[in-house]
Every structure is written in structure tokens, then in C-alpha cells.
């Protein structure tokens, strides 16, 4: 891109840009701040080490302590069976619970997209139906969704199924509404032209409408992915006995802040990576529009 030198110097309509340097500096500054805070809190209160553990504690006991989240079944003995806390065992624990969380989040998200897209396309084709569904969704949108995860645990038990169903429930409406709205705002000639070429309604839906709404849908697919990760966390925090959310809840129960920070960090990394992936894939699919 051509850089508008003058615009920059005169400061009219200036636009800032994201800088990787700033991102890196921000993370470093965050770590330094944490360490300073832990020194300060540690010096002024008796329980300081437990409230804001210093980085060296987070990186040692914060990691090895995770060993007891390993539930066995993969070869090595668990801590309940007498194994000592160790880095390999902690790695297994993180891997085991990350997998559980990843499967739930992605299964729920993909299910929501697989249901939301076709239903959205069908709903959009009939205007009264679209308006009726918007009416329902307008109400459901205001429900405290995250706090309704205990319901799914009551219905499906404390199982992975409950978690997936809850994630799907949370993300489905986002995809459905966005699809219906995107179809509604397509310009009429876009579907009239292929009709003059003799395409059937189903062909038009799949080959014309679906690709045409993808750029408008991209934001909603990202929002739905974010919702899915919030939902999987909520469902694991209350009731389910595995996954990173469960581990996080346990660290809260016993106030193990060093382990809490590590688990939260792993969860943050996974959800960030997942959203980047969705962004990348949808970017590929909509490459023609930019």
C-alpha cells in the first residue's frame, strides 16, 4: 500500500496500525507488572504468595501441581495411585483436559454451523418465517445463556454430551440469525441473474447465495466461535468433571492461584488459536471479495 506521507504529517484522517512489536512489548510489560505486584503484595500481606504468586512459583509448582488433574488411562500412574508431581505428568494432565475441552468446543461449534447455515438459508427464503424466527431469537438473545449451563447438566448429566449440546445451543442462534439477515440484504439481481440461466432454487442456494453471504457471515462465524469457547468454559466450570474449565474450578476451590494462572493461560491459548483458525479459513473462503 502507498503510504500517504502528508496525511501522516498533517494528522488529517490518520489511521493507526497494529504492530507486533507493541503486542510483544505489552505481553512483556504484563509479566513484569505481575512480578512487581507479587513482590508488593508478598511484602505487605501474610498470604501474598498465595494471592499473587511470583513468576518463578507459577513456572514451577504452578505447572507440576497440575499433575493431579491427570486421571489415568494413558499408561503412567496418577497421583491418587501414588505418583509424584512431575512435569511429564503435568503435561499429560494438560493434554488430557485440553483434548476434552477442544473436542467439546469444536464439536459444538461445527454442529451449530452445520445446523444454523441450512436452517438460516431455508428460513430466509420465506419472509414471514424469517420474521417469526427473528422474534424468537430477539427474546432468546437476552437470556443469560452462560448461566444456563447447569440446566444442560440436569438434562444430559455431567457428560461431554451436555457440554456439546450447551455449546451448540449458545452458538446456533448467532449463525442462524446472521445467515437469515445476510440473505435478506443480498441485492435482488444476484439471484435473478442465475435464475435467467436456468439454475434450480437448490443450485442457486448452494452455488450463488452461500458464497455471496460468506463475507457478511464472517464476523458472525467469529462471534459464534467466541461464544462457543465461552460456553464450553461455562459448562465445564459448573458440574462437568473433566476439561480445562473443571481444572480451573478446582484451582478456585482450593485457591491455588499459581495453577489457576497456568490453566487459564492454556485455555486462553487454545481459544485464541481456534479463533485465528476460523479467521484464517473464512478468510480463504472469502478471498474473492477483497
Amino acid at each position: 500500500m502507498i503510504e500517504d506521507v502528508g496525511t501522516r504529517r498533517f494528522g488529517v484522517a490518520l489511521r493507526t496500525r497494529p504492530r507486533n512489536r507493541a503486542l510483544l512489548a505489552g505481553v512483556l510489560a504484563g509479566l513484569v507488572l505481575w512480578q512487581l505486584l507479587s513482590l508488593l503484595v508478598g511484602a505487605t500481606t501474610s498470604q501474598g504468595q498465595n494471592v499473587v504468586p511470583p513468576l518463578q512459583q507459577v513456572l514451577t509448582t504452578g505447572i507440576t501441581g497440575l499433575s493431579h488433574f491427570y486421571k489415568g488411562g494413558w499408561g503412567p500412574e496418577t497421583t491418587l495411585q501414588g505418583a509424584e508431581d512431575s512435569v511429564p505428568l503435568a503435561a499429560l494432565a494438560v493434554l488430557q483436559n485440553s483434548l476434552a475441552t477442544l473436542v467439546r468446543a469444536w464439536a459444538g461449534y461445527l454442529l451449530a454451523v452445520a445446523l444454523g447455515l441450512p436452517i438460516g438459508l431455508a428460513v430466509a427464503a420465506v419472509r414471514p418465517l424469517r420474521q417469526a424466527v427473528s422474534g424468537i431469537a430477539g427474546l432468546l438473545r437476552m437470556l443469560p445463556v452462560l448461566a444456563m449451563s447447569p440446566l444442560f447438566a440436569l438434562w444430559f448429566g455431567a457428560t461431554t454430551t451436555a457440554s456439546i449440546a450447551f455449546v451448540t445451543f449458545g452458538a446456533f442462534w448467532v449463525v442462524l440469525l446472521a445467515t437469515a439477515n445476510a440473505v435478506n440484504s443480498l441485492p435482488a439481481p444476484l439471484t435473478e441473474y442465475p435464475r435467467t440461466l436456468g439454475l434450480t432454487p437448490l443450485q442457486i442456494s448452494i452455488r450463488i447465495v452461500l458464497p455471496a453471504i460468506l463475507p457478511a457471515l464472517r464476523g458472525a462465524l467469529m462471534l459464534a466461535a467466541g461464544t462457543a469457547w465461552a460456553c464450553v468454559l461455562a459448562s465445564e466450570l459448573y458440574g462437568i468433571q473433566s476439561g480445562l474449565g473443571w481444572a480451573l474450578n478446582q484451582t478456585l476451590l482450593y485457591t491455588l492461584v499459581d495453577q489457576m494462572v497456568v490453566v487459564a493461560g492454556v485455555f486462553a491459548g487454545l481459544s485464541l488459536a481456534s479463533l485465528r483458525l476460523v479467521n484464517c479459513v473464512t478468510g480463504r473462503l472469502t478471498g474473492w471479495s477483497e
Binding site: R17, P18, L23, G26, W229, L248, S271, L272, R276
Partner: peptide, 18 residues
């Protein structure tokens, strides 16, 4: 922008519930 970017970048994608 440099100051806010790290926060907005991370928590724009990661659920704050964590």
C-alpha cells in the same frame, strides 16, 4: 493503539469468563 492492542487482541478472542 500500542498500549491497548495487547489487551484488545487477546481478550477480543478469549472469553473474559476465564
Amino acid at each position: 493503539r500500542d498500549v491497548t492492542e495487547p489487551v484488545l487482541f487477546v481478550f477480543g478472542a478469549v472469553p473474559v469468563l476465564v
